[in-house]
């Protein structure tokens, strides 16, 4: 039981974070695609902007790992 809950917790931690990252990246990515279509030299900056929300899922991963390692 306890193990199961821990696993669910870890799953939620990374799953919700990934969802948030996905939503943010979809919008930034769409805008970025538009920007790059007009100004290809912006590609580097756009990769940077698209990459920013990834911090969320990395933190989610860190949290999930912590839950599994410390709680499990």
């Amino acid at each position: 039981m306890e193990n199961g809950l821990t696993a669910i917790g870890a799953g939620l931690a990374i799953g919700l974070a990934a969802l948030g990252t996905g939503i943010a990246q979809s919008r930034i990515g769409a805008a970025g695609a538009g920007a790059v279509a007009e100004k290809p030299e912006l590609a580097g900056v756009i990769i940077l902007l698209v990459a920013i929300p990834e911090t969320m899922v990395i933190l989610g991963f860190a949290t999930a790992a912590m839950i599994l390692l410390l709680g499990g």
């Binding site: 990834e54 911090t55 990395i58 933190l59 991963f61 860190a62 790992a65």
Partner: peptide, 12 residues
């Protein structure tokens, strides 16, 4: 701190 943690993506 976030910058350092960001390297966790290598593991992930």
């Amino acid at each position: 701190l976030g910058n350092v943690l960001s390297y966790l993506r290598i593991a992930a």
